[in-house]
Design a protein around this nucleic acid. Structure first.
Lengths: 332, 332
DNA sequence: TTGTAAGCGTTATCAC
DNA sequence: GTGATAACGCTTACAA
């Protein structure tokens, strides 16, 4: 192993002091041009790179951002990470990606690791079971900025960036009504989740306002299998009386498709289908499924710029919302 | 901001030396039990955590592994990362995930970052356009162990872990023959890629050995769209004379499904379908698509154990292969 | 314009 | 058992 180059080695070689080398390398104004040239030349030759540990130790912080998500095997979080990665790289930061495996204990362990490594900032999507926010509060005491995204806490003292779920729900319902697709079977996810509650409220509010609440049937499915079952059962019980199905997520959408398939029903003639999605899965089917797009990528961009604002200091704690857009498809 | 606890603070508080505190905290045998107790108690109270920068600077390496992939938005790499993450965590390491955006320059930049941060080891899947291995060679000179996975270089001086592509191709062909599904339309990906070449060789070798080479039609699709086109065209040209379609990847499979759909053909009666996949997408359709599973997760486990071997020093450079398994589905 | 020296928080090698 | 002390590689007042 060729020993790595350090400031000291360069300074010894050139018979100048370490500090001069250090300054020359960072183009400090008051170092002689000739000296700079010599230093830089040798540094390049020796393939010198500053030792990040030493720099960080000295500066007391690293240029690493952390992203803590319940699961990275998730297209939405992926695109979020992708977006943050792009911006982070552009600003000279790198990203440390941590999974909580949807376990609050692992989540806490991840936070400890972040503190431990003095990361520059943390982006967090909570696990669905995170109960106490104590570990997060602790980050404030060590001045690590925190931005919650997607799965955010109720607590108002935190910075949050989230999907405008209520509006997304409204948007979906409006689309269905506009296309005259009542009566509709709406399948939501876990009823306990706030995301479900907000989307459902938006959806039903529109139906109520339009006076078509009686043409709306709601049910809940926690997994794709359950969505299959509901689809089959509701259509059989109600004698295929639904003009359309609304699905709250990709997973449910997949279930609905399987269900309709079992019933030998064709999209969009036998029934229309509209879902909420981050955008990958709906395009795989034929006809492509119409969806209201909640963009993880855009959320990432928004979160990052929020993080930068927070780090610059001139801002207040608040929650930002990201709007969704309609992507047409042959299923509606 | 509450100042963070350090060894010095604890030692001042207790009027003992820094070294004793350090030793007490790591249960060094020759420190008095009573002293240990007091130190640990105070440390817990002050919420002390060792400063990772200082430790790393001192020890000259960090306990962070890096994973460098072309794209993380890819189910295969996901499961790979998931597996490595699990093992790394268990061993007290953390993971730094870096994307190359399939750009050799970004890839090189990522490697520099790894060196710079003295990572404990690197797992790399090359971009499809990586030409020179110089940057990788450089890692050896600074003693950073390297394991290539999935997209590995031809160079034999590197450690590699990869899918047994040839065998996987064979396995697929054997399954198709066993189910009497000739003639078959086989759609592969980019013909330049070694992964394509190996899978294709395995596939055709079996057909040749079985004497059914004349019942095999091969074509190449770089994107899903192309696969749609090929599917439609080949079936129309050949008057639906194929008993089955073989697809080399998820993306192609999606294209084939759309194509068959356009042709109003039903699986598995009008045509059978077998694909190679990491396992997520094939289960979304109905009937579920039969596939030969190349497990990113298993590859991750294998890579990690390989990394550990390399780090322990008692091993030689070599390439490991991971076998695939058949997952039945209604499409075959 | 350049050099000296203190310190960042730890670990490790000596002494006592 | 415990305590000095010297690194690790870098930045940054403060001198010269």
């Amino acid at each position: 192993m060729k020993t790595t180059a350090t400031l000291k080695k360069i300074s010894d070689h050139l018979n100048i002091s370490i500090s001069t080398v250090s300054r020359a390398l960072k183009d400090h104004p008051d170092v002689a041009p000739e000296t700079k040239r010599r230093v830089k030349e040798l540094a390049a030759m020796l393939d010198y790179e500053p030792n990040a540990f030493a720099v960080n130790l000295r500066k007391k912080h690293s240029n690493v951002f952390a992203v803590v998500v319940p699961e990275i095997s998730n297209y939405f979080y992926h695109s979020f990470i992708q977006a943050v990665e792009e911006d982070a790289r552009r600003m000279g930061y790198t990203l440390m990606i941590l999974q909580s495996m949807n376990d609050p204990d692992v989540e806490e362990q991840n936070l400890r690791l972040c503190r431990h490594n003095h990361v520059a900032g943390i982006f967090v999507a909570l696990t669905s079971r995170t109960a106490h926010m104590q570990p997060f509060k602790k980050l404030e005491t060590v001045d690590i900025p925190l931005v919650f995204f997607d799965k955010v806490p109720a607590d108002e003292t935190f910075n949050k960036v989230s999907i405008a779920d209520y509006d997304t729900g409204r948007q979906a319902a409006e689309l269905l009504l506009k296309h005259r697709k009542a009566p509709v079977l709406a399948i939501f996810g876990n009823a306990q989740l706030s995301i479900t509650q907000r989307r459902e409220k938006g959806f039903t509010d529109v139906c109520r306002e339009a006076g078509t609440l009686n043409k709306l049937t709601i049910c809940y499915a926690e997994h794709a299998d359950e969505a299959v079952r509901h689809t089959v059962q509701y259509f059989q019980i109600h004698g295929k009386a639904f003009a359309s199905v609304f699905s709250m997520s990709d997973e449910i959408m997949c279930g609905v498709l399987k269900g309709l398939n079992q019933l030998q029903m064709k999209l969009p003639d036998d029934a229309a289908l509209l879902t909420i999605s981050n955008g990958f899965l709906p395009t795989l089917f034929s006809p492509e499924i119409a969806f209201v797009k909640t963009s993880g990528y855009d959320l990432g961009k928004l979160s990052f710029s929020r993080m930068m604002e927070i780090m610059s200091g001139k801002t207040f704690v608040r929650e930002n919302f990201l709007a969704s857009t309609y992507i047409p498809g042959g299923s509606l």
